[in-house]
């Protein structure tokens, strides 16, 4: 099974919630590849919409994705703009944001952070 391609999609139409409201599109970079995200949504939602299943690997190499979706469990942490351990379920996307899988607790990427600032 390919970790990048998996079930997951946007719910454009819904019997109760109605049509998806038009939202501004942003571009974020997942593992260096551009990916469409919607303004105001958390990183998790953009990745799920794009069909990303693996958000990170533990030190022993086992894959993880989101679990609680509300910032409690830290399963969903990734390296965001060079900073590891960011909870992607409660962190909003920003234009140009770089999101990377981390291995174990990840590494601080000082260069990436400086680039961003």
């Amino acid at each position: 099974m390919n970790a990048e391609k998996s079930p997951g999609s946007r719910i454009a139409k819904h019997a109760v919630l109605g049509d998806m409201p038009v939202q501004k599109e942003l571009t974020i970079y997942f593992e260096g590849k551009p990916l469409k995200a919607l303004e105001g949504e958390p990183i998790m939602a953009a990745l799920v919409a794009a069909g990303v299943t693996v958000f990170r690997y533990t030190k022993k190499g086992s894959p993880r994705r989101m679990f609680c979706g509300i910032g409690r469990c830290t399963d969903c942490v990734m390296t965001v703009d060079g900073v590891p351990g960011v909870r992607t379920c409660v962190t909003e996307v920003r234009e140009g944001m770089r999101v990377e899988r981390q291995q174990g607790v990840g590494n601080w990427n000082i260069q990436a952070e400086a680039d961003h600032a």
């Binding site: 079930p7 997951g8 999609s9 946007r10 719910i11 819904h14 919630l17 998806m20 949504e41 958390p42 998790m44 939602a45 799920v48 919409a49 299943t53 693996v54 958000f55 086992s62 894959p63 993880r64 994705r65 989101m66 679990f67 609680c68 979706g69 509300i70 399963d75 379920c89």
Partner: peptide, 24 residues
């Protein structure tokens, strides 16, 4: 701990608040 296992509330948040479907 496999990706795809999540709390019901997590799935509910994804589909009803963020409007993305985590699985089929």
């Amino acid at each position: 701990t496999l990706p795809g296992v999540m709390t019901a509330g997590c799935a509910q948040t994804l589909i009803n608040v963020h409007r993305v479907l985590p699985g089929k």
